[in-house]
Amino acid sequence: MLSELDISAIIITIKLALISTSILIVIGTPLAWWLSQTRVKFKVVFEAIIALPLILPPTVLGFYLLMTLGKNGPIGRLLESFGGSSIAFTFSGLVVGSVIYSLPFVVQPLQNSFASIGKQPMEVAATLGASKLDRFFTVAIPLARSGFITAAVLGFAHTVGEFGVVLMIGGNIPGETGVLSIAIYDHVEAMEYGQAHLLAGGLLITSFLMLIFVYLFNRHFSIMRGSEK
């Protein structure tokens, strides 16, 4: 059955995914909105930066994060000069790494669904007396509902599944930065295939169920909106 370490890995993973996803939604929403509305020429540069984690090997990203956040990195030094300590090999470090790594999985679905709303509903809201901020919260966000569900589920699942980044920046410290995906690797290394199966199978089924949920919800949603035409 599951060892104490396995259970702590599951808890750390879920905690990491929940916190990262929340942060991602909070910073991803304004970012995606801006990208969907702006007409500035260098927009593609921002889109490329956000999409980088999609194609970079996670170890590369992890390496640079370690260099930046570590004791001798610029941000590590900055933190120490304020009396803190470097966040490399801590849970906070994992959160920072996950947020950067999963950013495209949250920003892209949000950006797409904001773009698909079009100008009109926001213009209608303006003629009905709603200010910019008011219409963002009462029109744009509710109409982008399916994008939010997709973004949250993808952000969550992707954080649960990451390996390279968390290994580099977290260092697999049991009870602190030891996450599920690394625990599976450790079990395989130690030839404990039974426990590896249990964790891997659990992850597989959970991911599958989450995707089913996303597709079901989006289908329901598109039926509701589609039949209006």
Binding site: Q120, P121, A125, A126, L128, G129, A130, R135, T138, L143
Partner: peptide, 28 residues
């Protein structure tokens, strides 16, 4: 726009699809 007291009726009605009829009216 939001400070002009105007009533604007768009070509295709443009009701908010995330609200029902009552919701569209109470929005105003």
């Amino acid at each position: 726009t939001h400070k002009r007291q105007i009533g604007y009726v768009f070509q295709d009605a443009a009701l908010f699809s995330h609200l029902d009829v009552k919701g569209n009216l109470t929005y105003v």
